[in-house]
Simulated assay, not measured.
Amino acid sequence: MGDAFWQYRTAQPGDPARSIDWRRSARSDVHFVAEKEWQAAQSVVFWVDRGQSMQFSSEKNLVTKADRAALLSLAAAVLLVQAGERVGLTDMGIRPMRGEVQLGRVAERLADKTPQDYGVPDVSILPRHSRAVFISDFMADPGPVEEALATAADRGVQGVLLQVLDPSEEAFPFDGRTVFHSMGNTLEFETRKAGELRDRYLARLARRKERLTAMAGLTGWRFHTHHTNDSPASALLWMYQALEGRA
C-alpha cells in the first residue's frame, strides 16, 4: 500500500472515522477523505447472473447455481472490502464503494431474481481501469458476454469469468425417455433416447468452455469452472488470486 496523496473526496456511508481528514474537513460543512494513489483504481465490480437457469439444482441436497454464485460473490466482496477496496454490482446503479453498508446493499441485491431464462452482462457502470467478476453458468448465447468483454477491454478493465455448473450439467446422466424444461418454462424438449444425446451435448459444452477460455485470453481475463458439489472455498481462493494476478 502506497502513501502518495491522490485526491480528496467527500466521505461516504461506511467510511471509517479514521479515514476522514479532519484538517481538510474543518474548512467545509462536509467531511472529506484523503485518498491515496494506490486506492485510485481499486474497484471491483461483480456481474452475477440471476436468470432462471441459475435456479437449477439436480438434487435436493445440492445448492442451486444462483445460491453458490451469490455466496462466492459476497464472500469475495467481504475479503476485498477488508483489504480496503471498493465493491459493487453492475446493476446497483451506484459506483463501487467500501464499508459494511455497501456489503449490505450487495447482499440485498443478490437476493433478487430476473424472469428471463438467462441473464445478460451489464457493463454500463464499469469504472475505467477497474477489475470485474462475471459469475454465470454461461449457457446462453455467448454473444452478449463477448460484447461485454470487448467493452471492458476498451476501458482497461481486467477480471475473471467464473462458470458455475451443476454436476449433472457436466456429466449429462440422462437416459431413455426424458423431457427437458428450461427453468423459466419457456422451452421444452422431449426425447425417447436421451442417452444418445450425451456425446453431442458434452462436445458442445467442451466447445463452449474453449470459447470462453479464448474470449478471456484475448482480453487479459481468466476463466475457471466451478461445480456446486465442490467446496466453495477452492473457487473463492482461485477467484481472489486471479483478481490479484496470481492464478
Rank of each mutant, 00 (worst) to 15 (best):
Q52D: 00
G14S: 11
P115N: 13
L126G: 01
S168H: 14
L79I: 00
A41S: 07
A214G: 06
G84F: 05
Y240I: 07
R86S: 10
E37L: 14
A152S: 09
D230N: 14
G104F: 06
G51Y: 02
M1K: 10
A153W: 05
S124D: 06
D15C: 08
D175C: 14
L72M: 13
D137K: 07
L71E: 08
F134E: 00
R200H: 10
H181P: 04
Q55G: 11
A11N: 03
W38K: 01
D112K: 15
K65P: 06
D117K: 12
F46Q: 06
V179T: 15
W22N: 12
W6V: 00
W22I: 08
Q102T: 03
R50P: 02
R131H: 07
L79A: 07
G119I: 09
I125R: 15
R155L: 09
P13S: 04
T90F: 03
M183P: 06
M215R: 14
S58I: 07
Q116Y: 11
R200Y: 04
G245S: 09
R198N: 04
Q12I: 04
T225M: 07
P173T: 00
D166T: 03
F56Q: 03
S25H: 05
L103A: 06
M54L: 02
R200I: 04
S57K: 15
F180K: 12
Q241R: 15
Q12M: 15
V48P: 03
Q102C: 08
Q241N: 13
